[in-house]
Simulated assay, not measured.
Amino acid sequence: MPTDPSANKPSAPATPDLPGRAAYTQFADRYSQMAPEKPHNALYERPATAELLGDVAGLSVLDAGCGPGIVSAELAHAGATVKAFDVTPAMVELARERCADLPVDVAQGDLGQPLAWLADGQFDRIVCSLALDYVEHLSPTFAEFHRVARPGAQLVFSMAHPMRDWIDTRTRGNRPYFETTRFGLHWGGFGEPKPYVEAYRRPLADIVNALLETGWQIDRMLEPKPVAQMKAVAPALYNELALAPAFLCVRARRV
């Protein structure tokens, strides 16, 4: 469930809940309709994630935190067999609708909990697109990914860039860079009413060390640049993202 840096001013917290589920229930339909072409997603994060994933034809892929099934559908069209899950019931239904005629099995599940319905050593690829920002502790999640991955499998994930979020005082508050901080913002770009979205900001070392401690070997890291097409459709955003990254994309291998 992707994050969106085009956020407005912070507000009072939403009803206590899992950050992702509470947020995306508010605007699941709008997100599903807009994210396929929204520049942050279609011309920035998804191309970088697809580059790291490479050819998936004939592979078994887990789409963890699948949202409305945009990536799941792309994977299936590229020849993969996909299992997908999301914590938000509305997103699960939207993903099932989008992938109804494709080799995609969608379930409800929480990235912050054991993936008990998935067998050991099941997947060639695991993709987690902009969903880990809603998980407070990454090590248990990476450990579960390691369990369900086959030897030599690859994990590809994207997150908000730790330094980008640190520069923004709305996300760091008055706490040190080295702490994990839960914050909330009203997002622009998805119509009215603006959804209030909570997530976690954490230091880069916590992301890297959580991977290494759970048996993953980092293979490649991208601080993506916007694709050239964005310059025509969203020039201000293109200039912003060409100057500094908003997201971090990582590929790791199971060892």
Rank of each mutant, 00 (worst) to 15 (best):
R254I: 11
R254P: 00
R202M: 07
G184N: 12
L212M: 12
P176A: 09
G215K: 04
A199M: 13
L248P: 07
T181F: 07
N174K: 13
Y196P: 00
A228H: 07
T181P: 01
R254Y: 01
T214P: 00
F247A: 13
L248T: 06
A242Y: 08
P226D: 04
D206K: 14
G191H: 04
N239M: 07
K231F: 00
P176C: 04
E192N: 14
R254F: 01
Y238E: 01
E179M: 05
H186F: 03
T181K: 11
E179N: 12
A246I: 01
D206E: 14
P235Y: 10
G184A: 04
G189Y: 01
F183I: 05
G173F: 09
L185M: 12
R182L: 03
A242N: 13
A205E: 05
R202W: 09
V197C: 04
V208M: 13
M221R: 07
F190H: 04
L237K: 12
A199K: 05
V233M: 07
Y238Q: 02
N209K: 08
A246W: 10
A236K: 15
R201S: 15
T181V: 15
M230P: 02
V250Q: 01
R254L: 10
G189R: 09
R220H: 13
F178Y: 02
L185N: 06
G191R: 08
D206F: 04
G188D: 12
K194S: 12
E179Q: 13
P203Y: 03
L248V: 15
P245F: 02
P235H: 10
Q217R: 15
R253T: 15
P195I: 06
W216K: 08
A232S: 12
V197H: 03
L212T: 11
Y196K: 14
V250N: 01
A244P: 00
R182M: 09
P226K: 08
H186Q: 13
A246V: 07
K194M: 13
N239G: 11
G173D: 11
I207P: 07
I207M: 11
A199G: 05
Y177K: 00
L212D: 03
K194F: 03
A232K: 08
A228Q: 09
G191E: 05
V227K: 10
G189N: 03
W187M: 02
L243D: 14
P245E: 09
E198N: 03
A252K: 09
D206R: 14
L211K: 02
R254A: 15
M221K: 02
D219R: 10
G184W: 03
L212A: 13
R175I: 03
V250K: 06
R202C: 06
V227W: 02
V250T: 11
T214H: 01
A244K: 15
N239Q: 15
G184L: 07
F178M: 08
M230W: 04
G191S: 12
